[in-house]
Design a protein around this nucleic acid. Structure first.
Lengths: 219, 219
DNA sequence: TAAAGTATGTTGAAATTTCAACACATTGGA
DNA sequence: TCCAATGTGTTGAAATTTCAACATACTTTA
């Protein structure tokens, strides 16, 4: 287990827990690991959600298949990232997504109940673990809320301005860098890239903002 | 405190906790209550998030003011509902929203840290409380995720079909009732009501679905 | 350095949405 | 019973988006 310590250290679930405590706790938590080959389905839609997954090596893809059989990719997770944590906390009877190995991957599973119900051994950092898991969920909730606020706007222009002013607020200043290139920004705003570019040009001409690359300045 | 027991019983934070245990715990948690007059700002944007709020009587509005000073209403909360729980769990330095009393309202505040770090008294149901809070956050995460999946579609038609097929999946059958009237459905999908009505008619003519009121049947 | 690849901006046509206005049905009082 | 209020469906015009295709700048690497 120790060989993955560097991964645990960047996993938000183990934030502020010492190396030794991590190892001890993984025992208490009855964590188990598994290796999956490329394209293997780690968790399938419809299966009950019980375990939180952690990517120890490799990477996985979150996918979803709709009513008509069209598969869409919801995201990619790399080393240290968690999956299924919300579904596991809810004890959902059937997962709404599948998790598939992108490449040969080591995955760790922890029964969510073992995290939520503190063990008999009185692990000193069990509370921290609960605290961390709560933070992960809370952060996700807040991020989703912000995204909904942005993409619920009707036009590309409004979406863009809502996003940019949120950034300005966060940075406490009118000029800032965004963490996206144009295509990524379009994907985040859920709009067409070329239309987005056009709107940025227009806002620039109108004197509403300045922009060079991913650096923006609201006027 | 006992006079609000009927409210606590429908509050998800106290699910599966007995009346007596609720009262005992509220002491341990150092919960405090306050009365706010209509239009009073209970929590203001920019103030640090520390407490989870519970509406004991009356109702509150979640609002947000953008860069240009436009205020928008994000939601209404009634008796038994929680607010600011995600922000408090994250210990956000400044709230991204305000909470305003819609009418004269009794509000209870609980320091989030008191929930997350179990007390010395060994309250038997403290674990249940943590578990419940986690479920609240997890449920919200999942609901937001589903909403994003729906409204990230580009056209009204796609949004509607994505929503309806999700409902069908949940109900395990092709016919079901939705919890919205047309205007509410349009608000949820973030589209124009009349355009939504037009799309429903079109899908009906194409033989894709049947519908009477809020009852739908996918063909 | 040249070539290939990637990121971005521009454009016009087609598709779609929004918006406003109105028709019709249903509901709940007065 | 009648009236007002509410919910829903329809329509056409204006605004906006998407889509495809291409131009231009910047990067990477052979």
């Amino acid at each position: 287990m120790r060989k993955f310590l560097n991964v645990f250290k960047k996993c938000p679930l183990f934030f502020d827990v010492s190396d030794d405590d991590i190892i001890t706790m993984l025992g208490c938590l009855k964590a188990r690991t598994d290796i999956f080959d490329k394209n293997y389905t780690i968790l399938s839609e419809e299966s009950p959600a019980k375990y939180i997954g952690i990517v120890l090596s490799g990477s996985v893809q979150i996918t979803q298949t709709d009513y008509y059989g069209n598969r869409s990719i919801l995201g990619n997770l790399c080393e240290g990232e968690l999956f299924a944590e919300a579904f596991a906390c809810m004890q959902m009877a059937s997962m709404p997504v599948s998790v598939v190995a992108n490449e040969k991957s080591n995955i760790m599973f922890i029964d969510c109940n073992h995290i939520l119900h503190t063990c008999q051994n009185g692990c000193p950092h069990h509370q921290q673990l609960i605290y961390n898991l709560m933070k992960v969920l809370a952060l996700k909730t807040v991020m989703f809320q912000q995204k909904i606020e942005v993409i619920s706007k009707r036009t590309t222009r409004e979406k863009l301005l809502t996003y940019l002013t949120t950034c300005a607020k966060k940075n406490n200043r009118n000029s800032f860098k965004i963490p996206f290139n144009r295509q990524e920004l379009a994907d985040y705003l859920e709009v067409d890239r070329s239309g987005l570019s056009a709107q940025i040009s227009k806002l620039r001409k109108e004197g509403v903002l300045e922009c060079r690359g991913n650096y923006f300045n609201l006027l």
